[in-house]
Design a protein around this nucleic acid. Structure first.
Lengths: 200, 200
DNA sequence: AAATATTTTAATCAAATGATTAAAAACAAT
DNA sequence: ATTGTTTTTAATCATTTGATTAAAATATTT
């Protein structure tokens, strides 16, 4: 019946298994470092089946990348244009939400930034982060608070303090346990530091 | 004579041309993204000649990577253990020297961090940054100044503010001209912010 | 100049890898 | 049960790519 079919789909449909596997392997090894065979193996299926479902490595990659960009944007967008939040509240929310997201997806930043560098053309249209921020209430509030400060300088610092630990994790932190604990503490630290940076 | 041989070597010896080309292509595309044919073409030589000089892609890569790590360490080492510098002077020197280095080598951070992630084993021994910092006078000074603050939290912020813009360059900055100008201004900004962060 | 060593090239190999095909197996509809 | 559709597999292809080889060209030494 449709029941069992639905149940199977919701459970672990082959398509979903492939997407999960692709997500894992692509974010870990990047596009060129990933072999479609690796994805197939990770998904517990045959290589041909992967091409049957997604036509090509490229198509599957595009799907995963779109998913990851969506994930990253979904943190920024609802915050930077929320007029109900003060500048301080926006900063706190950004840091808090990003750290929560990245603790669960530590490979995300290096993956996305690496792929953008490897193929800038492919992201030209999809990434108008600059334009997006340009007209945000976040930027407006920053300009009002500190007219002498180039907003992008502050934003780069805020994002750098938040995202960089996940990029340099391998080098600077001993084990995962300690890392997670310190990232928790970091939420408050960054918020405090960011506020200090805005004082004249 | 030896003269002409020397002259030729110093000029643009084949070996040097290959190293230059490998440096460029590897840092731009990473290990897996680089084809030995790309390096050969960039160097204006034959593919076989590359293997004649360096035996394998792997060997050539190791050479380049060692060069790049040396470049990065050469900025940190002389500063963090220089007892003649105050904490503030160390911070200023680190930021200043790193930005100078990275403006000329913008691909460096993403390249090195990407390769470490792709092959953590291969760096296990070469990267004892943690141990290196652990016993530095920089850390000691940080602990004295702010005993309540985990030093690594401050260092990650300092490095993040300094290095992250070069990693996210593609996304956050319009053109190269503006980017360089703002990185210049950033030297003073980060130093100022870092000092504020250390105030209680 | 002859002999020797070094540098460079064209051609080719073998392994890896993305993709396809044709057939089998599982499932659903009649 | 029979038929038709969807899912899965094994086998194979074609291309890419790191590496090798043998020979030619160039430079160095005697």
């Amino acid at each position: 019946m449709t029941k069992s079919k639905e149940a199977k789909r919701l459970d672990t449909s082959t398509e979903e298994k492939i997407i999960q596997a692709a997500s894992k392997v692509f974010t870990q090894k990047g596009y060129v470092g990933t072999r479609t065979r690796d994805i197939a193996e990770e998904a517990g299926i045959n290589l041909a089946l992967l091409n049957y479902y997604f036509r090509s490595k490229e198509k599957l990659f595009q799907l995963i990348m779109a998913e990851k960009l969506q994930l990253l944007f979904s943190v920024i967008l609802p915050i930077v244009n929320n007029d109900d939040l003060t500048l301080e509240e926006k900063m706190e929310a950004l840091v808090e939400n990003y750290i929560v997201l990245l603790v669960d997806n530590p490979d995300l930043p290096l993956f996305v930034l690496g792929e953008i560098k490897a193929n800038p053309e492919g992201f030209k249209d999809r990434l108008q982060v600059r334009k997006l921020l340009q007209h945000s209430s976040f930027i407006r509030q920053l300009r009002e608070r500190r007219p002498d400060l180039e907003p992008v300088q502050f934003i780069v610092s805020l994002l750098g303090m938040t995202i960089f630990p996940f990029i340099a994790k391998q080098i600077l932190f001993a084990d995962d346990k300690i890392f997670k604990k310190q990232m928790e503490e970091r939420k408050i630290l960054i918020a405090k530091w960011a506020k200090m940076m805005l004082e004249t």
